[in-house]
Nucleic acid binder design. Structure first.
Lengths: 170, 170
DNA sequence: TTGGTCATGTAATTCGTTACATGATTGA
DNA sequence: TCAATCATGTAACGAATTACATGACCAA
């Protein structure tokens, strides 16, 4: 249940409404932790009930601005320092690789070629994102850049692997 | 809903019972698509209802051996060739990186050091797995080896990235 | 005879997705 | 005035996790 920590994390930077958080997800965390609108509002209610965030202001159209409480910050720190990240990530992409034997070699190579292309596209899109952002020295910039570098390296690795893999199949 | 395809894929190699599939998950697919016992039995029932697999033999202790039907194989091929893999994978590891700013630099570097260690351990464990397996020329060997190579490259990439990232934080 | 492993299932709960539903405010 | 955007929520369903429950078979 990391969505709750993602929300706590975003609120640790500054107070925000559900709607604000939704927008910020789209432009930053969507790549590492996609979440839907309804999931976020539900989770915000739960977090408020649990006392980890509180309504600090109300605006037009029923807007509710949430602020991280001390308990919420403590929980965020606890998650970061005391709990281990999950080792197994589910990978749709890799699962398919196991079963490429039911296809013809041409089809199997076709799949790997698609993966190469996908990796290249994602690499390029991250590179453009990198260039479009005005990176500063603030903590958010530093860590955002680190995450982005991961994405670049990951896609470069995957592209090369897919190329190598296609070569293994005949 | 890829568990269903994982099961179809395993059954495409040879007929098996739920219990057999459970064991084979543990030793092969657990890294790319973890699933629990109860999830598997439930999904097998659904697949049988849907006509994608059928009970081909019954053994002692209520053992039911399932065999892939033509419909099941068609569905597996359809999944492999006609549907696109998910682009966004959730990453617990990376989500944390975004919020390392709430920790002290020492703690943040500590997290990245843990990641380096984790990546090294996983790399080594995959390398041992590689050596322990008697690879042949059969389709399963070829594709299993390709998936394993992905794991090796992935962990090598992640280790280097974590090292670089720790350097960025002061 | 008894402990291990083989073998299958159900129930409760949580997490995630899709769809539905509603309405206020603002700027052109 | 009207379209876009701001803004929040609920309902239904499916997928995943944990726990519970049961019992047959086999080898020591």
């Amino acid at each position: 249940m990391s969505l709750r920590h993602a929300l706590l994390g975003l609120l640790s930077e500054r107070p925000a409404s559900g709607y604000d958080l939704l927008k910020r997800f789209e432009t930053s965390l969507a790549n590492v932790w996609p979440a839907t609108q309804s999931q976020m509002y539900t989770e915000l209610s739960k977090l408020a009930d649990a006392g980890m965030i509180s309504v600090s202001a109300e605006g037009p159209r029923g807007r509710k601005e949430y602020t991280l409480t001390d308990e919420g910050l403590a929980e965020l720190r606890h998650w970061l320092t005391e709990t281990k990240p999950q080792r197994n990530t589910r990978s749709d992409v890799l699962l398919r690789v196991f079963f490429l034997g039911v296809l013809t070699p041409e089809q199997a190579r076709g799949y790997l070629a698609e993966l190469m292309e996908l990796s290249e596209q994602e690499y390029e899109s991250l590179r453009r994102l990198d260039e479009s952002i005005d990176w500063g020295e603030d903590p958010l910039s530093v860590h955002g850049k680190i995450a982005l570098e991961y994405g670049l390296r990951f896609n470069a690795m995957r592209r090369e692997w897919a190329e190598w893999a296609a070569d293994q199949i005949r």
